[in-house]
Computed example of a mutant assay.
Amino acid sequence: MRLSRAASWFLLAFGVWSWFIWVSFVRNLWKNGSGLAFDAAGDPTAYFWVHFLLAVTSFLLGTAVGVIGLRGVRALRRAPR
């Protein structure tokens, strides 16, 4: 299956965007001082683990989508016009 140029670039951009957003989210989660992510003893709470797993899943899906987009862009560049 061949992807169009627009679809390839969209998937690549989505992968990059996903990493940008979720890295920022995990950084903010790690520095959370409101008591939601860490209890008084400094141990991670259920809130932390749920959101951390959500971020890891999004990293993996964003990577997969970005790789598909990258492969589409590279295939378009190699294809004769």
Rank of each mutant, 00 (worst) to 15 (best):
H51K: 04
A75T: 06
F25R: 05
N28G: 10
W19I: 06
R27C: 06
F38V: 07
F25W: 03
V65L: 15
F14E: 09
M1S: 06
I68H: 03
L70P: 09
W30K: 01
I21D: 00
V16Q: 03
A46Q: 11
V16R: 08
L70R: 14
A64Q: 12
N32R: 02
H51P: 00
R27Q: 09
R74S: 13
A40D: 07
S8F: 02
V16L: 08
L3R: 00
D43P: 00
P44Q: 03
S24L: 12
T63Q: 11
V26H: 00
L53T: 12
G62N: 04
N28V: 06
L12C: 09
G62W: 06
L60F: 08
L61D: 00
R2C: 00
A13F: 07
W17Y: 15
T45Q: 05
R27H: 08
A40K: 11
D39K: 09
F10A: 03
V16I: 14
A64N: 10
F38T: 10
G35N: 04
R27G: 03
A7E: 12
V26N: 01
V23T: 13
I68D: 02
G15Y: 05
W22N: 01
V26Q: 01
N32W: 10
G66F: 10
V73N: 10
P44C: 02
L70I: 13
I21M: 06
P80C: 01
A7K: 11
D43V: 10
R71P: 08
A40V: 07
N32A: 12
L54D: 01
L61T: 05
F25D: 06
W9F: 15
G66I: 12
A37M: 14
V50K: 03
D39N: 15
G33S: 13
A41V: 15
S8H: 09
V67S: 12
A13L: 09
R77P: 02
L29I: 03
G42I: 08
R2D: 00
G72C: 15
R5M: 10
L3E: 06
R77T: 06
F10H: 06
H51V: 02
V67T: 12
F20M: 14
A41Q: 14
T63E: 13
L36N: 14
S8G: 13
F52Y: 13
G33E: 03
A46P: 00
L36R: 11
A55I: 09
G42P: 00
Y47C: 00
G69P: 04
R74C: 12
S8Q: 12
G42H: 04
S8T: 09
